[in-house]
Design a protein around this nucleic acid. Structure first.
Length: 281
DNA sequence: TGCCAGGCGACGC
DNA sequence: GCGTCGCATGGC
């Protein structure tokens, strides 16, 4: 499995749905295609992926090589979501949400990309976020292959003006993207250090960026920096919490709040059960 | 048409 | 500290 190859089978033992994981609103660059394939770019790897009986097939589309370890990390396969689920299911309401999409995992995305993607996400919808991210990559990301672009490095954005970002049609978020780029490119903000920094320090550091408040910081930490105890509260989650957990999240979620959050987010948005059991306002 | 979208900053109190 | 409003853009 660790052999360098253009096509890999990544074995998956439990709790994984590729489609649910890529479609649940945590990432914005994968495109669903015919035959169960998803095409996308992760860091500098252009590939397509598909779920098969015994795992995930990853096929390089460029003259690219990588190792299985890379994809194991990306799909968060080193930890047992069965264990997380068992803990969450101690609460009946969390169990409902957890069973609605048992194969969702938290991707371990590149931190800079996660940060910018969730800056773009504010007061926005998932379809439009995807469009803005795509235009950001096309405009400033550098080509990996013909018509295929990497996510732009902070250094590629730090010297730009909001006028130059106009083609993204990102609205008031353009200035926020540039401030993030300047802080990361200059070294004022060290994203990698936030993987292990005390959580409250990491939150505060991220919120020094203009346009990054509690929610976006929480998303960057959960989706980009592997901090599974983070719990982003967007409009859907506020709705879910008000109706399902007026007294707060049950203690059984401690340590895997982010996993609970992703189940609840998807449940509140997509499950007819949520509307039925917890009602419209 | 108006309302909403994986929020945040500015402002008034 | 807390509530309210405006913010660009586009889909419904």
């Amino acid at each position: 499995m660790n052999d360098t190859a253009e096509k890999l089978l990544i074995p998956v033992r439990e709790c994984f749905s590729l489609a649910d994981t890529l479609n649940c609103g945590q990432c914005f660059r994968w495109q669903e295609q015919d035959g169960g394939w998803f095409e996308g770019v992760v860091e500098r790897h252009w590939c397509r992926v598909r779920q098969e009986e015994d795992g995930i097939v990853v096929e390089a589309l460029g003259g690219d090589d990588w190792q299985g370890d890379f994809w194991e990390a990306y799909f968060d396969l080193a930890v047992s979501y069965g264990d997380f689920r068992e803990r969450l299911c101690a609460d009946e309401r969390l169990a409902d949400a957890a069973w609605f999409a048992p194969g969702i995992r938290i991707l371990r995305q590149e931190p800079w990309e996660a940060l910018v993607s969730f800056i773009i996400s504010q007061n926005n919808n998932i379809g439009r976020i995807r469009g803005i991210v795509a235009r950001l990559c096309e405009s400033f990301g550098g080509a990996i292959a013909a018509g295929v672009y990497a996510f732009p490095l902070p250094q590629a954005l730090a010297g730009l003006t909001v006028e130059e970002l106009a083609p993204l049609r990102s609205g008031f978020r353009a200035g926020y993207i540039l401030d993030a780029a300047k802080q990361v490119a200059s070294g004022a903000l060290d994203l990698e250090a936030l993987r292990t920094a005390p959580l409250d320090e990491a939150r505060l550091a991220l919120q020094q960026i203009r346009g990054v408040g509690p929610k976006v910081a929480e998303c960057a930490l959960l989706y980009g920096l592997g901090r599974r105890e983070c719990f982003p509260m967007d409009v859907w989650m506020k709705r879910a919490m008000t109706r399902m957990f007026p007294d707060g999240l049950p203690s059984c979620a401690r340590g895997c709040e982010g996993v609970a959050q992703q189940y609840l987010f998807h449940y509140a948005r997509s499950s007819p059960d949520f509307a039925e059991k917890y009602g419209a306002e």
